[in-house]
Amino acid sequence: MQDSRNDALVEYLLGCARQDAQALDRLYRATSAHLYAQLLRILRHEASAQDCLQQVYIRIWAAAGQYDASRARPMTWLGTMTRNIAIDWIRRQRPSEHDSDELIAAMPGLSDIEADVDLAQHSGELHQCLAELNEDQRRALELAYFEGLTHQDLANQLDQPLGTVKSWVRRGLERLKTCMSHLI
């Protein structure tokens, strides 16, 4: 089932590379709800997520020729592109290079409580490999992954020494890799 879905997505991406409008339409139908959920999780603001979702598919249309099925599954490629666009969007909203919590909190749009979305989006069952992480490790990895935080940003946000946070990240990554490698 998963393989046939992958194959279909690869076909759509190849179609986009040939500038086939129907392939873009099908790719959008098959993937937009996943990428929109990802953008909402990162940006926490509906209008910004919708703007970024448009950017994602405009870039897919322009860059689908670069997709190499031997190097990444389609959803990983699309998810990575989506994450990069969203984190780039967050960074461009920052008035300076200093990545402090105060600046992130003050970003226009992100503090718009009215449009804030429910973050409790986790599907019922946590992926078994995420369940292998302890709470600190999972929190550190999720914050880094969805909010684009560096080690130092994480230490500031979690109010923990830098060394502690680095250890959570590294050990969390090791556990994740070990578990995921067994699944393949």
Partner: peptide, 12 residues
């Protein structure tokens, strides 16, 4: 990508 896979899809 497992972090993305745990999210519930939302139609835009």
């Amino acid at each position: 990508n497992v972090f993305n896979e745990q999210l519930t899809p939302i139609a835009p």
